[in-house]
Amino acid sequence: MKKFSISINKIIILLFLAIKPLHSAEMTDPIKMDWSFKGLTGTFDRASLQRGFQVYKEVCSSCHSMQYLSYRNLGESGGPEFTEAEVKAIAASFEVTDGPDSQGEMFTRPGRPSDMFVSPHPNKEAAAAANGGAYPPDMSVLVKARKGGANYIYSVLVGYEDPPPGVTLDQGVYYNKYMIGNKIKMPNNLEDGLIEYADGTVSTVDQMAKDVTTFLAWAAEPELEERHRTGVKVIIYLILLTTLVYLSMKRIWSRVDTEI
């Protein structure tokens, strides 16, 4: 039986190896980055998250919404961890539509930490209309919504190139070697020195792409650090308990003549 199943395994492995090259994608594989939040104990780089928020605020947020985040999230542990005063100031820098008031009128007021991120457009249709018909996707869970995750987002941000000869692009369409089909409707919005980082870091395209990707990875999984921490504890606990139960089982089964 053993001999037989091993040879079958080999056949299957060979079969899959033979199939693999046929399954080719129409895009370049994303760049594999060594993110600090990968791995069993991965955490976010706090400074990078804060810079990433700045990139989002100054560049991305003019087209992309992040409707599932609240300003208070920016101060919560495991995130950019802005101070309470900073969060209040960030929130207050946005105009929030509220109401209706007692007269039935909608009104605007400065944002509060409990408010959700203000969207650049009132609805999807307006967002698409303002962007040549292409809706800039909401970025709250974008990293989880793309195959390749953070690597893919980063790669697209740094993947703009002149189209190779023979490829013609319609107006408002750009060439990006990591995008599926290589065509993207988002222009290359990053250029070296575009923004002045609050912490003095030099804002190269690569730096901004890394920072904003880190920020988006956190936005998609704000629970990541707590999840990793809890996971380690849970698994250590389970291993200890399993050991104890195993020893008890051995003890109990030693009363009968059966191996376990």
Partner: peptide
């Protein structure tokens, strides 16, 4: 459950 937890947490 250890395998289960591996998926859930990591």
């Amino acid at each position: 459950m250890i395998i289960f937890a591996g998926f859930v947490f990591f």
